[in-house]
C-alpha cells in the first residue's frame, strides 16, 4: 500500500488516499487532511469528526450520514454545509476512517 506525506505527516493510505490505520490519526493530521480538500475546520466540523471517531471505536464501522444525524445529533442540512457535496466521504476522510459501507 502507498504511503503519502501531508504537511510532514507520513501516513499509509489506500489507493484513493483514505487513511488505512485509524490509529495513525491525530487531530493535527485532521486539520491537514481537511485543508487538502479545501475545508477549514470549525467547532461544528469537530463535533461531527469526534462523533465519527467515537462511534467507529464502539461500532467498528464508519457511521452513515443518517447515523451521524440521528445518533450524533448533527442535522443532515448542517452536514451538507460543513462537508459540501460528498459529506459522508469527506467526513470519513478527515476523521481518518474508511468510507461508510451502509446504503442509508
Amino acid at each position: 500500500m502507498p504511503t503519502t506525506t501531508i504537511d510532514g505527516h507520513t501516513i499509509e493510505v489506500d489507493d484513493e488516499g483514505f487513511l488505512l490505520d485509524p490509529h495513525e490519526w491525530t487531530e493535527s493530521l485532521a486539520t491537514c487532511l481537511a485543508a487538502q480538500i479545501g475545508i477549514d475546520l470549525t467547532d461544528e466540523h469537530w463535533k461531527a469528526i469526534r462523533f465519527l471517531r467515537d462511534d467507529f471505536a464502539e461500532q467498528g464501522e464508519t457511521a452513515t450520514l443518517r447515523r451521524v444525524s440521528v445518533v450524533g445529533g448533527i442535522p443532515t442540512k448542517s452536514l451538507f454545509q460543513l462537508f459540501p457535496q460528498k459529506p459522508a466521504k469527506k467526513l470519513a476522510y478527515v476523521a481518518g476512517l474508511p468510507k461508510p459501507h451502509g446504503c442509508v
Partner: peptide
C-alpha cells in the same frame, strides 16, 4: 511494496 509519492495522495473530491 511500499511506494512514496512526492505529491500527497488525496481523494478526488474536488
Amino acid at each position: 511494496m511500499t511506494t512514496t509519492q512526492p505529491t500527497p495522495i488525496v481523494p478526488a473530491f474536488a
